[in-house]
């Protein structure tokens, strides 16, 4: 059995941790080859080759894949598909864009967002915003899977010495169906939400954008990433890309602190794999408490400054 994993990376030559999680999942199914597609790849090939568990790195160095647009990238993967029993992508925006297109080309039903591998054909995946876990068995000969990053520990960045093969046939490279215009990256000095050890999120209870400074001060003490509920994003308190939940980001930090968040199903779906969840809310009946390890019932405007001060004193 050989598995192809699409490598997801950031410009600036950084392999996303979710790729390393996908590789961990792939090693449970067979020998792992990774596909590195793009332009100006720098030392990414060497970094991919060093990933623990990777046997081979395929490089598709071509302008057409520079922004990993779905149309050419899916064609590229389809052109390689014959050699693989299973094709895996990280279940991030990129993987979710590309994999079902490959599935359409190959006439296979994909299996999205797997969180557990039972056997080579059987997988567990969350449905209904994570409130239900379904175990599904695929009867397709070839498997197309996207892997939820928080469900598998990332493979080590070192220890591998995979062979590197440069591809010379660039399927889909002539495609001009879509054109890249612009990337708007949200700048932040804080850790990324998906890989931060601690995440602190604010909800509608924060009442205003200005009040998020209280969250920022606590986040500074914990080197935490800052998140938000959909209600806080919709109210315009904070940017879209901070949204945690079914329609935002899925996080799994060691410590998740929910401040002024009631705990809608959609939000809980995005945090349930966190190791420890703390809820701060003035409503003792808020559903968030039932989903938490620890809770404080009270006024967040009093609790957050105390938390900041006492965390500072702990150092």
């Amino acid at each position: 059995m050989t598995v192809l994993v699409l490598l997801s990376y950031e410009k600036g030559n950084y392999i996303r941790p979710i790729t390393r999680s996908a590789i961990t999942a792939a090693t449970k199914l067979g020998d792992v080859h990774v596909l590195l597609a793009g332009k100006d790849l720098g030392d990414l090939a060497q970094k991919a080759s060093a990933l623990s568990g990777v046997k081979k790195v395929l490089i598709a160095d071509h302008e057409a894949y520079a922004h990993m647009l779905a149309e050419p990238t899916a064609d590229l993967i389809e052109s390689l598909a014959d050699s693989y029993d299973t094709i895996i992508v990280p279940a991030n925006a990129e993987g979710k864009d590309i994999l079902p297109r490959v599935a359409g080309l190959l006439d296979i039903q994909p299996v999205s967002d797997i969180v557990e591998i039972i056997d080579t054909n059987t997988f567990v995946r969350p449905i209904y915003a994570g409130s239900i876990l379904a175990t599904v068995k695929t009867h397709d000969n070839k498997k197309l899977l996207s892997v939820r990053g928080t469900a598998f520990a990332p493979t080590a960045e070192e220890g591998g010495s995979a062979e590197i093969e440069k591809l010379t046939h660039f399927s889909g490279s002539e495609k001009t169906l879509s054109k890249f215009c612009e990337l708007k990256i949200s700048q932040s000095d804080r850790p990324e939400l998906e890989s931060a050890r601690v995440v602190i999120s604010g909800g509608r209870g924060m009442q205003s954008s200005d009040n998020f400074v209280l969250i920022e001060k606590v986040a500074d003490q914990l080197n935490a990433a800052i998140g938000a509920s959909r209600a806080a994003v919709d109210a315009g308190f904070i940017n879209n890309d901070c949204q945690v939940g079914q329609t935002g980001k899925i996080v799994a930090p060691e410590l998740y602190i929910a401040v002024g968040i009631s705990g809608a199903i959609q939000h809980l779906a995005g945090i349930k794999e966190s190791k420890v969840i703390v809820a701060i809310n003035k409503d003792p009946d808020a559903p968030i408490f039932k989903a938490s390890n620890y809770g404080i019932v009270g006024d967040l405007f009093e609790i957050l400054p105390q938390l900041e001060e006492k965390l500072g004193a702990l150092k």
Binding site: F180, E182, L183
Partner: peptide
């Protein structure tokens, strides 16, 4: 994942 991407289709 890290913001927004604008494409012309």
């Amino acid at each position: 994942d890290d913001g927004q991407e604008i494409l012309e289709l």
